[in-house]
Write a protein that binds this DNA or RNA. Sequence first.
DNA 1: ATTGAAATATGTTCGTA
DNA 2: TACGAACATATTTCAAT
Lengths: 156, 156
Amino acid sequence: MKLVNETVVIDGIDKTILNFLMDDAKKSILEIARNIGITGAAVHQRLRKLEKAGLIEGSKLMINPRLLGYKTMAFVGVYLDKAVSNPQAVKQLRQIPEVIECHYTTGNWSIFIKILCRDNEHLMNVLNKDIQAIEGVSRTETFISLNQQINRQIKI
Amino acid sequence: MKLVNETVVIDGIDKTILNFLMDDAKKSILEIARNIGITGAAVHQRLRKLEKAGLIEGSKLMINPRLLGYKTMAFVGVYLDKAVSNPQAVKQLRQIPEVIECHYTTGNWSIFIKILCRDNEHLMNVLNKDIQAIEGVSRTETFISLNQQINRQIKI
DNA sequence: ATTGAAATATGTTCGTA
DNA sequence: TACGAACATATTTCAAT
């Protein structure tokens, strides 16, 4: 494992370990080790290196938000006035719990966000009350995800 | 915990457990138990119920794809010919490893996808070779994420 | 970088309340 | 639901190669 051009170079064993855990973070080190044909201690040591390299950002339990009543996902393109500090707008977006992604993007929108709401009424409230209240937001363009067909991490 | 309108009703303890694990899937049951003030066995039992209810979809190790050379994230609105079967297009999108999300959406686009590429050249190849090759794709509109500022799950 | 073994911590089950 | 105790697995460390 080496640093080349701000990139971490990993070998095939590292990839195998990461792919296993990216699929299931609770897969045991020993099980992974048996699959590869090395000992648990070796896998453990590699994982420590990958963590130290900053490659591993943590692990998350994935839940199905629909079953908790969050049934409306939407994408929102946000137009910001030129005069406004974009970081300030992002700071305020962070305060809105329904905002789960936020990107600076090329194109007409200044900021592009993904939001998760209970229903369309909840979405309307977030758009009209929370997001429109942010200083510098001139208007928004919203499209709703009717159905998410693919949701995965990159296969490395 | 009850099923009401296809929704799982959970109590505050369940929420605490889930929020801990959604933030860090490897946090130990015992540590969570100590935080709540119940035993590990009780937390364990609740987790089994939440799993049985289908609320838990698994756990994922999160990595920083930038450090592996994946530095260009983009969103692509896809226009599909009316005649074409959308599920067929999704099936082909699934074959493209760079496609990490795919949604049916309201608005002008039929399908909206998120893709992760090494660089702009790689992105161009995916767009021009892989995505344009899909039957029924008439044109696409792409915008690049210059910087992702927020990336999180919903706080329950 | 990898091993085997030891020590520690955690997950899991179960009878009982 | 929750508890506590017993048991089974997993993680973590380390000296040696």
